[in-house]
C-alpha cells in the first residue's frame, strides 16, 4: 500500500513535491514506529482485560477459566435489577458525584473571580499555593486528616460545641455522610479546578471592564455583565465534559472513609463492585455491574463530547 502511494505520488506530482511526498512517507513510517510501543502497552494492559468482560455473561468458574465457563446470557444483569440494594447504590453514586460536580464548579468559579480581585501579590501567590496543594495529596493521607477533623471528638465538633451545637457523628450518620464526602472533595479540589477559570478571567479584554466602569457599573454588576459572560464558554464546556463523571463517586475517598453504618447513604457503584465482586468472590456479578456502569459512562461521555462540539465548538478529543 505504501508503494502504491509513492507510485501514485510520483506520477502526479512534480519533482519537488515528489521529494516532499517521499519524506512524508518516511515520516509516516517513523510515526508508526513512534506510536507502536504505547499501543503495545494499551493492547496488553487495557484491551486484553476487556476480553474478561465476557465473564459478565458467564457463570465464571475459576477452575474452568474464561474459555470454558458456561454462558448464562443476561442472568447477572437481571439479578442486578432485582436487588433492592442496587437502586440505592446507583442513587448514592449519582447524588454524590453530582454534588461534587456542582459544588466544585461553583466554588471554583467564585474563588477564581474573587482571587482575581486580590492585588497584594504575595497574598495571592500564597493562597494559590495553599489551595492547589490538597489536590496532590492522596486520599489515603487526606482520609486520616478528615477523620481527625470530623470525629465525634474531633476539632470540628469542638468548634461547634463552642456555639452550643452538636456533636455530630459525621462519619456515622446517613444524613451527614454525603455532605461530608462532597464537602471534603470540594475542599480537596476547588483550588485546582479554579486554575482554568482564572485563566479564562485574565483572558477577558480589560477594555470591557473599563467601558463598564465608565458607564457607572459597580463591581458586582461588572462581574455579572462582563466577567461571567466572558467565562461562560469555558464553564459550559467543562460542565458538559464533567457530565460523564456522574457515575464516578470517587472510590479512593469513599473506600477510606466509609463503614457499614453509612452503606445506606455512601455505598457507590465502585465500592459495591469491590465488595461483592472481589471480597464476596462473585466475580461474574461484579463484572456485570462494572460493565453496566462502563456502558452508561461510555454513552454519556460520547454524547457529552458531541454536545460540547455542538455548543462550544470545542471538544476533548
Amino acid at each position: 500500500m505504501k508503494l502504491d502511494y509513492i507510485f501514485k505520488g510520483a506520477r502526479i506530482m512534480q519533482q519537488r513535491k515528489r521529494t516532499a511526498s517521499k519524506r512524508l512517507t518516511n515520516s509516516n513510517l517513523t510515526y508508526h514506529l513512534m506510536i507502536l510501543p504505547g499501543i503495545v502497552f494499551l493492547l496488553i494492559f487495557n484491551y486484553a482485560p476487556m476480553f474478561g468482560l465476557v465473564m459478565a455473561f458467564q457463570d465464571y468458574v475459576p477452575a474452568k477459566g474464561i474459555f470454558n465457563s458456561d454462558f448464562v446470557g443476561f442472568q447477572h444483569f437481571a439479578y442486578m435489577f432485582s436487588l433492592p440494594s442496587i437502586e440505592r447504590v446507583f442513587t448514592n453514586t449519582i447524588v454524590i458525584a453530582g454534588g461534587k460536580i456542582i459544588f466544585n464548579t461553583l466554588l471554583a468559579i467564585v474563588f477564581a473571580i474573587l482571587l482575581n480581585e486580590i492585588r497584594v501579590r504575595w497574598l495571592k501567590k500564597s493562597v494559590q499555593t495553599i489551595v492547589y496543594l490538597p489536590n496532590f495529596l492522596s486520599w489515603v493521607v487526606l482520609a486520616s486528616v478528615v477523620v481527625n477533623m470530623f470525629n465525634l471528638d474531633g476539632s470540628v465538633n469542638h468548634i461547634l460545641d463552642n456555639f452550643g451545637v452538636g456533636p455530630f457523628n459525621f462519619l456515622g450518620s446517613n444524613q451527614l455522610f454525603r455532605p461530608l464526602i462532597i464537602g471534603t472533595d470540594v475542599w480537596k479540589s476547588f483550588g485546582f479546578n479554579s486554575i482554568v477559570y482564572l485563566a479564562a478571567i485574565t483572558s477577558i479584554d480589560p477594555g470591557l471592564h473599563e467601558a463598564a466602569s465608565i458607564d457607572g457599573a459597580n463591581w458586582w454588576r461588572r462581574v455579572w455583565h462582563v466577567t461571567l459572560p466572558g467565562m461562560l464558554p469555558i464553564i459550559l464546556l467543562l460542565a458538559i465534559l464533567n457530565l460523564p463523571n456522574i457515575l464516578n463517586g470517587g472510590f479512593d475517598q469513599i473506600y477510606n472513609l466509609y463503614s457499614p453504618v453509612v452503606y445506606q447513604s455512601g455505598d457507590i457503584i465502585d465500592t459495591y463492585v469491590y465488595r461483592v465482586g472481589l471480597m464476596g468472590r462473585d466475580y461474574s456479578f461484579g463484572t456485570a455491574v462494572g460493565l453496566f456502569k462502563s456502558i452508561i459512562g461510555l454513552v454519556l461521555i460520547l454524547s457529552a463530547n458531541q454536545t460540547a462540539k455542538k455548543f462550544t465548538e470545542r471538544q476533548l478529543f
Partner: peptide, 15 residues
C-alpha cells in the same frame, strides 16, 4: 481505552 476498561479481576489476571 480511556472510556472503557475490563475491570479489576481481568486486569489482575493479565498482570
Amino acid at each position: 481505552a480511556m472510556l472503557f476498561n475490563g475491570g479489576m479481576i481481568p486486569t489482575y489476571l493479565v498482570v
